[in-house]
């Protein structure tokens, strides 16, 4: 169940909008951040808030790659596999991260900390090879930099959320 405070804030915004449907991405983000991912309950709540059918929300949720319909870890690693990053490391940054965390692309570590997602060009080609972690840029990636970054993130108690 969505906490009253979030529901109220969203309802106020929706009521003030001339075209409530315009807010669907924002509402999906908000519920995703609350639940950790856009689960079936969240999907129905988005639909109900915006007076859409769950199917209408689903066709958007599954279209966008920053909306997660399956559980993700506390940190989502969007590892860029655009052509510039590829040129520098030929997917080996992705391979390295997967090996280090013991997961395949798309999987989450058993402790629920990290999800690794290969992602199209993230727009930081001047920092190639690059990745986004919960929306924040990390690059240029080297094995040592990746080791250090993931180690630091493990020990962070607060959630770092820019965009996920």
């Amino acid at each position: 169940m969505l906490p009253e405070e979030i529901r109220h804030r969203l309802e106020t915004r929706i009521a003030a909008s001339a075209h409530p449907r315009e807010l669907v991405v924002d509402v999906m983000y908000e519920l995703q951040n609350h639940y950790g991912f856009l689960n079936d309950v969240a999907l129905r709540e988005v639909a109900e808030l915006l007076q859409l059918t769950p199917l209408e929300v689903e066709e958007l949720a599954t279209f966008y790659d920053f909306i997660y319909r399956r559980p993700v870890g506390r940190f989502v690693l969007h590892v860029c596999d655009g052509v510039v990053c590829w040129m520098f490391e030929e997917q080996s940054a992705l391979d390295y991260i997967c090996k280090l965390l013991g997961v395949a692309p798309g999987e989450t570590t058993p402790d629920g900390q990290f999800t690794v997602l290969p992602t199209v060009c993230v727009g930081y080609c001047d920092h190639a090879p690059a990745m986004l972690i919960n929306g924040k840029l990390y690059g240029p990636l080297t094995p040592e930099f990746i080791d250090r970054t993931l180690e630091e993130l493990r020990s962070i108690s607060c959630d770092l959320v820019l965009c996920r």
Partner: peptide, 8 residues
């Protein structure tokens, strides 16, 4: 590839 990664 430099930086510790392999490159073709």
């Amino acid at each position: 590839a430099g930086g510790g990664f392999r490159r073709k």
